[in-house]
């Protein structure tokens, strides 16, 4: 059958490292090491499994500054065939409405280049903005069906996919006409770890960079000025927890020390 799959991946500040702020209180993104958003690896893995099952091509798409390319290479090393990077200074400060508009325009262009598009996969949310907006919003911009919180892609045919999605208190099975956008939340898609050889061959894979004019993106609808929302202020979240971490090789001492701490703090567990 051969599926044309677009996977949206976002470079994010490495979630293992604490956020850094500039003196004015905004995030110092340049000072933070970039990595591939964890959920996007699930989406890449889902795409790879589909390709292994029915064949096809996987195209990675990202909107990010050029220096993010190193982090994005990981998707290529996992097995993504080609990559398009939308990079343009005028995109800086875009909120989710602007970002989803810009990415939907890239998908449109890719779609018309390929002639046929089956699936757009994305992660359910990014670890730096945690909005889960982009998937549903791209579906709206493109006017195609979209399903968020997809746990598993069950079946795929030339016209439709059958998916299981998480809902409050359970799950739902849906038959979705393609092309469609799926936001992957499935922890069953354990991302494969690229070998050294994969990493090396990823360097030879093609990465196309587009600016917004090449995609036909309206500059007035992106960037800070094209974004309806404004961040007024950011601050480090307060942790009100005691945060007493006890470690001791000897389990007896560990437990004793813990119970002693509780006693000192006047806490009884029972």
């Amino acid at each position: 059958m051969g599926l044309n799959i677009v996977v949206l991946v976002k470079p994010v500040p490495d979630p293992k490292e604490p956020p850094r702020f500039k003196p004015d209180g905004t995030l110092d993104r340049l000072a933070m090491k970039l990595a591939l958003n964890p959920y996007d690896k699930y989406a890449v893995e889902a795409a790879l499994q589909l390709k292994e099952a029915v064949g096809g091509t996987i195209l990675g798409v990202s909107m990010a500054p050029p220096h993010a390319l190193d982090a994005l290479r990981e998707a290529l090393a996992m097995g993504v065939d080609e990559f398009v990077l939308l990079a343009d200074k005028r995109l800086a400060g875009s909120d989710t409405l602007a970002t989803s508009y810009a990415l939907s325009m890239v998908v449109r262009k890719v779609w018309s280049n390929l002639g046929k598009l089956d699936l757009v996969l994305c992660g359910v949310e990014s670890s730096d903005s945690n909005t889960a907006h982009i998937g549903p919003q791209i579906a709206e911009w493109l006017g195609i069906p979209g399903v968020s919180y997809v746990d598993k892609i069950l079946e795929v045919s030339a016209e439709a996919v059958k998916v299981k999605k998480i809902i409050e208190g359970g799950s739902m099975t849906l038959l979705v006409k393609t092309p469609a956008v799926l936001s992957i939340a499935g922890t069953t898609y354990v991302p494969r770890i690229p070998t050294l050889r994969d990493v090396l061959s990823a360097r030879r894979k093609s990465v196309t960079t587009w600016n917004i004019d090449e995609v036909g993106i309206d500059p007035a609808r992106v960037g800070l000025l094209g974004s309806p929302t404004r961040v007024v202020r950011m601050w480090a979240a307060e942790v009100k927890r005691k945060g007493k971490v006890i470690s001791d090789q000897d389990p007896d001492r560990l437990v004793d020390e813990f119970l002693e701490e509780l006693r000192k703090d006047g806490i009884s567990l029972r």
Binding site: P13, P15, P18, P19, L27, S127, D128, S129, N130, P228, T229, R230, V231, V232, R233, M234, W235, A236, A237
Partner: peptide
Amino acid sequence: PTFGGTVMAAIVT
């Protein structure tokens, strides 16, 4: 909260 809960943000539209 954003950044996985480590940062708080105040946002307006």
